[in-house]
Nucleic acid binder design. Structure first.
Lengths: 249, 249
DNA sequence: CGCCAGGTTGATTTCGCTCAAGCAATGTGG
DNA sequence: CCACATTGCTTGAGCGAAATCAACCTGGCG
């Protein structure tokens, strides 16, 4: 039900709604577009703000186009018949969501929820289709992106099948490090988590109680210290060690 | 090391090597190719036979092009640092393998092994690139394919995180049904498994011992009867019931 | 014949889930 | 301003599903 605030495509707002000045464009698939093609996007899109907890789309919703994140942080969730839910991945500014369902001509097969205040542009399906026709390299860009997503997904399948919870959580921390971490000189690390404990639990497919216990166990072994969403890791090396499977020789 | 037997592209063999007569082409991404483009494929490819156990490529190998399955059955495996291995999926005639690593310009990130005697055509990278340039809709086809693979992978992540072993195995049987099953009139089902117990275990991410026990438990409940690779399911309905999560109301 | 890989079975352990309670921070209405 | 829900997180006790360790059985094959 929360639908966010619409910001007109023609808005003069300096912080949203103009693809030509969009900070993130250069690093995404849209960077292959020419001036005139960008103008097509600019006309055909609708831009919105969302607050934490707002839903951008639900699993099962009809997919009418793609969503491009301009600012904020989005969680992509998927749930099964029994109501169990996992957090598949985080999406960041520059990421395009829903391109997969759109291209497969399918309904959305996961849901997207704002985790931070976010600005998201919606690009209408017919616009996307004409862009794909105008500029074939756009399709190849998305193809490459899909290839990478697929790798990540298969990696996740492997990990959740073979690694114990503690190793999966250590892995999650190391992934979050790249974007949210500040490495110290002496091999230590400070981290500001963008996620609640519940959501971290959902990312590695465990219950919140198990998340608490896993955090506790890392603290007991002096691998990391947690205080709210702040984490301090005294030795990055020992955190990396957690990834290794405890193997008999 | 087992490299299979090369069958020249110009071979007169009636069973392999000619894209124009290839039985599977119509149902795959290659069906969008025109006559002259097909001729390009025909020139640029190398065809080989493989016996069960032969490796088509290893995880980490350099990816020089794509492999198209003409006949047989291929298992796609992936292993982690600790030597744990899972069977990600089966690939069948018409499927193209390795397109993902190729498009991402990456090394192979999983390995492919023949599970049955198979015939596989290798299409050189430069050939694939020129085809993509000649016919942009080929790329879109692969994009759609990648989208579907991605769905499947995310579905698998969800399932292995939330469903118990027995339900995952029931699900596997139902998937195998579509290709290897013969449905009876009265809601029963006969199935000829293409996989060893070990490989089925690897598909749902469990140990072989657990596979044995799960089979036993289904037999004890008269859900299915196993004899070697033959399976008889008296009531398809009761097998489908196994998918549901045992939920408290 | 001995050997070996694939499969089954049993005993035991361990990891993560369930159920339940408690606690701190935040909000809400009288 | 206080009584009270509510929400997110933590902790404890007990349970259960699957892993582990180990033995053994089968069929194929040199």
């Amino acid at each position: 039900m929360p639908e966010g605030r619409t910001v007109g495509a023609g808005s003069k707002s300096s912080e949203c709604g103009n693809c030509f000045t969009c900070q993130t464009r250069g690093r995404t698939e849209w960077c292959v577009l020419e001036e005139d093609e960008l103008e097509v996007v600019n006309q055909g899109k609708v831009c919105r703000e969302y607050l934490p907890g707002d839903i951008i789309f639900h699993e099962g919703d009809e997919c009418r186009g793609v969503h491009c994140i301009e600012r904020g942080l989005i969680g992509v969730r998927k749930m099964d018949a029994g109501g169990n839910e996992i957090l598949l991945r985080l999406s960041h500014p520059g990421d395009t969501m829903g391109y997969r369902s759109f291209l497969a001509d399918d309904d959305h097969n996961n849901s997207a929820e704002a985790l931070e205040p976010s600005v998201i542009c919606f690009i209408d399906g017919s616009t996307v289709n004409s862009l794909l026709k105008m500029n074939p390299s756009l399709g190849l860009r998305f193809l490459r992106h899909a290839a990478n997503d697929l790798n990540a997904a298969e990696e996740k399948v492997l990990q959740s099948a073979t690694l114990p919870v503690r190793a999966r959580f250590a892995h999650l921390l190391l992934v979050l490090k790249d974007r949210y971490g500040v490495a110290g000189d002496n091999g230590d690390l400070n981290l500001e988590l963008p996620l609640s404990r519940q959501d971290m639990a959902a990312m590695i497919g465990i219950r919140p109680e198990s998340m608490s216990r896993t955090i506790r166990s890392l603290e007991d072994d002096d691998i990391a210290r947690f205080s709210g969403r702040r984490v301090h890791v005294p030795s990055l090396k020992s955190l990396v060690n957690e990834l290794e499977v405890p193997e008999g020789l």
